[in-house]
Design a protein around this nucleic acid. Sequence first.
DNA 1: AAGACGAAAGTGGTTGA
DNA 2: TCAACAACTTTCGTCTT
Length: 305
Amino acid sequence: MSEYIKKCPDCGSINLILHKDKGEVICKDCGLVIEDRMVDFGQEWREFDADQATKKRRTGAPITWTKYDQGLGTDVGQKGDLYKLAGKSRNKFFRLRKWQYRISTAIERNLKLALSELKRVASFLKLPKSVEEEAARIYTLAVQRGLVRGRSMESVVAGALYAACRRHEVPRTLDELSESSGIDKKEIGRTYRFITRELGIRILPSNPVDYLPRFASSLKLSAETQSRAVEILQLAQKSELTSGRGPTGIAAAALYVAALINNEKRTQREVADIAGITEVTIRNRYKELIKKLDLHETIKKAKKD
DNA sequence: AAGACGAAAGTGGTTGA
DNA sequence: TCAACAACTTTCGTCTT
């Protein structure tokens, strides 16, 4: 048992029980949960067969931010323990349960709801687990700092997801996020900026290269074309064609040019739709690319083949 | 006829006084 | 807080294949 807790801070009783398997310290007299989420101080065991495993294994599921209490947490009277008690003390525990519920409402209820929404959007966008975790962490921090107040829960969820995507370099566009969460694009952008600023999350400007694989596969372009596009992008970055421009536009143009060179021509319209930009933007980027990188001959040569 | 191209005007967001 | 500004979009007419 923890060294520093010897008396119940509520009733002063020294009758404390340690629930090792739950990681809780409970006052035997008043039922107060003095400490939960404590670390198991027990000896380290090894398990040699299935029987020992059930007896000796001490860990549960890994801690995760996608559960509102990180998969830990203590509930009063969960398993029907309460019905072993009679009369007064039973009522007392019902009261306790009620209070626990009330106390936890503010933040935890919000989290419960928000995280299920987060999960829904994340799976809709087919985001990897790591991004979902990150987004959940960001959201949890945001709630704890009261950043959600005055904003809709959904928009903060979307903002957190967007931030997590950016950090993990699996960018989704604001449009995609907006479509899957049903939140206005502007709103997501605003909350995104707000929470990243408030939480001091530093995010690199997104790299056009990160968009290529997704666009390329949507357009059913070959792997060669895709890697051609990567080369073009790298050259473009050296010539400083990329700074200050929308990353999707550059990615789309590079892909368009790469497709031309490799005789897998797609129309500007097709590419533009996939990338969520207009043909005009592709044209502008495309012109710049050709001019700066001297791709004239390369394209002409490709056409003859 | 479809796609590519370019001009011109409009939009939303950033920046700097 | 406002105006200037850059990037991007929308629209539309013209040219190319």
